[in-house]
Simulated assay, not measured.
Amino acid sequence: MKKILHVAETIKGGVATVIRTISTPPEGEDQQYELVYLIPLDQKQELPGIDERQIRTFTRKKRDVLSLLRFAWQLIRVMFKEKPDVVHLHSTFSGVIGRCVCLVMRPWRSPKVIYCPHAFSFLMESSPAKQKVYSLIERLLQKVTDTIVCVSQYEMDKAADFGIDRHRMKLIYNGIPYRKDESKPEVDLDIHLLFVGRLDYQKGFDVLLKAFSQVERADLKLTIVGSAVNSDSVECPAIDSVVYLPWVSPSEVNDLYKKADVLIVPSRWEGFAMVPLEGMAMGLPVIASDCTSLPELVTHDVTGYVFGSGDHQALASLLVNISKHKLAELGAEGRRVVRERFSATLMIQQTYDVYCAQTH
């Protein structure tokens, strides 16, 4: 039996979704793997359905030096005790600290190291100086990494441009469990727009507000789900036909997907966003920016519409012309694409193929 240790310095949002998804081995292989997890104590609720006996924790109040040291120390202890065959590191901080720990531990423990940055830090909008520092760290640490899992072709290509070895990288798209077809309730003739995400600069929340304010259509209704979590959060002004909701449960988000006619994803950068995948799996068309990986998921006039990142005028032009009937057609095609290219089954199989290849 192979033991896999999943390690995350924080698992809020998409990282938790990915970990939950790949916590079920492919059919017929569940007896071949034992899974263990190291996550923050206050985020255990992000892994419902996973046996608590498999979860190891550390105390994290915020991302500060003390919390990161606790994380590193607990990872050392868990590696000594559990003797994992594979350490699967999720996100940048886990990747940096986790690989440093694995390097220090090599005289005593030498598991295979899998790293998924969930979007490299040097691909985010930042100063050239910061990008150089981030890319230097990643280039150095790749030497103690057996496989780097990229979640989009864009991420893989850009990482190669920054000096990451293509032979170490493996493309595995995020996937969504199969969802049964459900006919949407005929609520009214209005067109219901939906935004789900952080209300900040990265997610393009300001672009959405500017665009919506310019469109003079009484039949457009916008529901915004989420809250600000970063210092670059955007103000939430009162606008006619706009409803703001706080973070809600996954079942409540699903209900909102069912009621919506189109999902808006105006991000400035993404790793490989789970929200558009979830919406498309529910038959929602997506209006997305052309940033980073989004064009790999949304095809213009096929599964939704694509506009220039940060261009609120272009988004407004799309909103002026959308129709309920056309949106339904795009949503049906989006559901088909998700089932063929972005299924959880495919994501799980490809992930465990990596584990198998590294431990043979």
Results as ranks from 00 to 15, higher is better:
254 N>S: 15
254 N>K: 10
254 N>Y: 15
255 D>A: 15
255 D>Y: 00
255 D>G: 09
256 L>M: 10
256 L>K: 09
256 L>S: 09
257 Y>H: 09
257 Y>Q: 08
257 Y>A: 10
257 Y>V: 05
257 Y>E: 13
258 K>P: 05
258 K>T: 08
259 K>V: 00
259 K>E: 08
261 D>Q: 07
261 D>N: 10
262 V>D: 09
262 V>P: 01
262 V>A: 08
262 V>G: 05
262 V>W: 00
263 L>K: 00
263 L>P: 00
263 L>A: 06
264 I>H: 02
264 I>W: 01
265 V>D: 03
266 P>V: 11
266 P>Q: 04
266 P>D: 13
266 P>M: 08
266 P>H: 11
267 S>G: 14
267 S>N: 12
268 R>M: 10
268 R>H: 08
269 W>Y: 11
269 W>V: 01
270 E>L: 10
270 E>K: 08
270 E>I: 02
270 E>S: 11
270 E>M: 10
272 F>L: 12
272 F>R: 02
272 F>V: 14
272 F>H: 06
273 A>Y: 14
273 A>C: 06
273 A>G: 06
273 A>P: 04
274 M>Q: 06
274 M>R: 10
275 V>K: 05
275 V>Y: 01
275 V>P: 05
277 L>W: 03
277 L>V: 00
277 L>G: 08
277 L>M: 06
277 L>Y: 06
278 E>Q: 06
279 G>K: 01
279 G>F: 00
279 G>V: 07
279 G>H: 01
280 M>N: 02
281 A>R: 08
281 A>W: 01
281 A>E: 08
281 A>K: 13
281 A>Y: 00
281 A>H: 02
282 M>H: 13
282 M>W: 03
282 M>L: 15
282 M>A: 11
282 M>T: 04
282 M>I: 00
283 G>P: 06
283 G>A: 06
283 G>S: 06
283 G>Y: 01
284 L>F: 07
284 L>N: 02
284 L>S: 05
284 L>V: 13
284 L>T: 13
